[in-house]
């Protein structure tokens, strides 16, 4: 065996983890920035927002009910 497999793979690990983290870190920063900008300049329109918010509240109730049912079911089974 000419190459030190473990040594090489350790180097790959350093490079790979560094790039994965750097990529996701930058992505997180961009997403935060974009959230700031978009919510400042393009907030979801008020009349539209009012209507869906009621829906969302109702939906949340539904979700809560469904989730409760599932938990109950899981407990039984």
């Amino acid at each position: 065996m000419d190459i030190d497999l473990v040594g090489e793979s350790l180097k790959f690990m350093v490079l790979g983890m560094a790039i994965v983290f750097a990529f996701l870190f930058v992505l997180v920063q961009i997403v935060k920035l974009q959230a700031l900008i978009i919510n400042k300049y393009f907030p979801e329109k008020a009349p539209e927002a009012a209507q869906p918010s009621a829906d969302v509240a109702q939906e949340a109730h539904h979700v809560a009910a469904i989730v409760a049912a599932i938990t109950e079911f899981r407990k039984q089974s």
Binding site: M17, V20, L24, F25
Partner: peptide
């Protein structure tokens, strides 16, 4: 999202 990065240790480990 960083958690999704940490789990990639599964690959490199």
């Amino acid at each position: 999202a960083l958690l999704g990065g940490a789990a990639q240790f599964g690959i490199f480990g």
